[in-house]
């Protein structure tokens, strides 16, 4: 077997793929949040930002396909690892007492799958605009797609906002275990830096939750209109 396929068929090699793709997707989550938070500055910067992204043309598709490839690799490698884990456990215990595994750690598969479902809905909602096709006709006075108005209208629906808040909560929960884990898997951990990753990961996941959830909450409470 050549060295690359040998590495990728090993337990540690596959975990590195999950960690590296997780890191890439985490980078997107941070960037996307910073982009979205421009809604609090006003329509002009947000619509300019949307127009800039759309203007990337072919390059935008390179980024999109790159993200899709990372997502697919993250999910496929995880499924493979989990199937092996299940097989390795064998006969279950009659009694199991967990001493360390946190709730977010044990919920990784569920939170991940829920976030995946949400991504499909979210893309249909705001990117493809299939859920409410009237979003396609929203334009600002400079003729650009009115991303700001789309966000306000989109989040005025209590159901869409509720689903969004729950989904970003699950995403934050996924990152709560994921951020610390990725440093451990990439071998960048020791007794010295461990508290930094563990506490930092939890703090960062809360930041992600509060950042994303602030938008629908601000729309529903009338802070943004």
């Amino acid at each position: 077997m050549n060295p690359i396929s040998s590495y990728l068929s090993s337990s540690i090699g596959r975990k590195w793929i999950v960690a590296l793709t997780g890191l890439g997707l985490f980078g997107f989550v941070v960037g996307h949040m910073i982009g979205n938070l421009q809604v609090f500055i006003g329509p002009e910067p947000l619509n300019r930002y949307g127009h800039f992204l759309q203007g990337l043309g072919e390059l935008l598709w390179v980024v999109r396909l790159g993200l899709l490839a990372m997502l697919v690799a993250h999910v496929v490698f995880t499924i493979k690892l989990r199937l092996e884990n299940r097989a390795a456990r064998g006969t279950p215990y009659a009694v199991t007492t967990r001493r360390a595994a946190t709730l977010p750690a044990r919920m990784m598969a569920l939170s991940g799958l829920m976030v995946l479902c949400f991504i499909v809905f979210h893309l249909l909602h705001f990117t493809a605009q299939k859920i409410d096709p009237s979003f396609l006709a929203l334009h600002d006075d400079k003729g650009r797609h009115d991303v700001y108005r789309m966000m306000i209208l989109g989040f005025q629906s209590k159901a869409a906002s509720g689903f969004y808040v729950v989904a970003v909560g699950l995403l934050a929960m996924h990152l709560n275990h994921g951020i610390g884990s990725l440093f451990q898997t990439l071998g960048l951990n020791s007794a010295k830096v461990r508290p930094l990753w563990e506490k930092g990961g939890v703090a960062f996941s809360w930041l992600i939750f509060l950042g994303y959830a602030s938008i629908p909450v601000a729309v529903l409470t009338g802070v943004l209109k």
Binding site: S11, R14, K15, L81, E84, N85, A87, A88, R89, R98, R99, A100, A101, A105, R106, M108, H177, G180, S181, Q184, T185
Partner: peptide, 13 residues
């Protein structure tokens, strides 16, 4: 046939 690490840290505990 051992499983893969999910960083549950039960081992350490």
């Amino acid at each position: 046939g051992f499983g893969n690490c999910s960083n549950y840290l039960e081992c350490e505990a």
